[in-house]
Design a binder for these strands. Structure first.
Lengths: 208, 208
DNA sequence: GTCTATACTGTGATAGAC
DNA sequence: GTCTATCACAGTATAGAC
């Protein structure tokens, strides 16, 4: 490779497929799956519609390819949770990882959260929604009462939604670190008493 | 009105327009705005596609008509908040009204929350999103730090999302009351310290 | 007020030239 | 690998019969 070795790192995304995945992910997040046409994606990426369909055999295939990395990491995260929950690690230790995972894959999370229900026939969406259910189950194993589950749900959903809702803002401003730490604080606070209630020797409050 | 006075209450929805609004609202919530065609709505309601377009001059007009009642009530709710906030009523008193409002207009809330960003060009959606911002501002007037705003955001967004996410389930089961009370508890707990922090004389806990 | 028929646009996807 | 041309189809919306 004589000529190409001159530019080593500059071009972050060279492959057309990767570029299309990235553009599609952003447009799917901003305008929805059905609200984004292959033509729009092709225009934004500077390709023809047919070229897009050359790299991905269908619109759905492009969608799946764009979401795949996030879903894979989420799956990996869940495995680590299940593994650690068998030991006696405190539940709030996973909050940091959870928030960071959401931050890293903001766009994918946005799509899954906001369009998951309406796109449930697409396989990877179904998979992602199943993983989200696993998150809930993993975090709330041994949380029987409705109030406890609601509490956990508010924590997880609230954190996810705050990140997702503020995604366009976060892309510009750089207060991500501040948001991250605030989220970790609040979610931890919501989750910690749940861990305490799991030990019956604590004479805690029994809600009405 | 001699003949029609025989059936007083039985038919809940008689008017074709009202019936179409109701059917459309449900289908828009379940399958999305772009994911629901006029043909599908017409079929589900037992009319022709053209009949739908007779009652509503366009798909967007039907959408707006379906969302209008919820948006109107939300607007009314916000006026009551602003009015009461000027007096020294505690902030957590609005939580009950807020949760009940979400419960009453679950489908509309579902649409606004899940599809609001992608449908921001539709006027009534824009209006609704503006109202939601007003909710946040009303609740968090005088909450300067990022952490406080995040805390409030998690409470409101978490509550809304829990209700919205469980909407299909809630339509069947009747544990709505239980979910309602649990939500009121959690949100109140999240919001109360915010009210306390506004009064410096309270030597309350200041979490790290 | 409801229908059938139709116009028009945009969509996802395929075939084939270069 | 990228393009133009074309396809079949679904979408919204209109016109006119009944």
């Amino acid at each position: 490779m004589p000529t190409s070795s001159a530019q080593p790192i500059q071009r972050v995304v060279n492959d057309a497929s990767a570029e299309l995945r990235q553009v599609a992910l952003q447009m799917f997040a901003e305008n929805g799956y059905t609200g984004t046409s292959l033509q729009q994606i092709a225009d934004a990426a500077g390709y023809s519609k047919s070229s897009v369909l050359y790299h991905f055999r269908s619109k759905e295939a492009l969608f799946e390819a764009a979401l795949a990395p996030a879903v894979a990491e989420l799956d990996q995260f869940l495995d680590s949770i299940v593994e650690k929950l068998t030991s006696d690690v405190r539940r709030d230790e996973f909050v940091v990882d959870f928030v960071d995972l959401l931050l890293e894959h903001r766009l994918a999370a946005h799509i899954i959260i906001n369009q998951g229900q309406t796109l449930s026939d697409i396989p990877i969406i179904d998979q992602a929604r199943g993983l989200i259910e696993r998150i809930g189950e993993s975090f709330m194993s041994g949380l029987p009462t409705t109030k406890q589950r609601i509490r956990l749900g508010v924590a997880l959903a609230g954190a996810a939604y705050i990140l997702v809702a503020s995604t366009p803002t976060l892309l510009e401003g750089e207060d991500i670190v501040e948001v991250r730490e605030a989220l970790i604080d609040v979610v931890t606070e919501l989750i910690t008493p749940l861990a305490a209630e799991r030990r019956p020797q604590t004479g805690a409050s029994s809600p009405s």
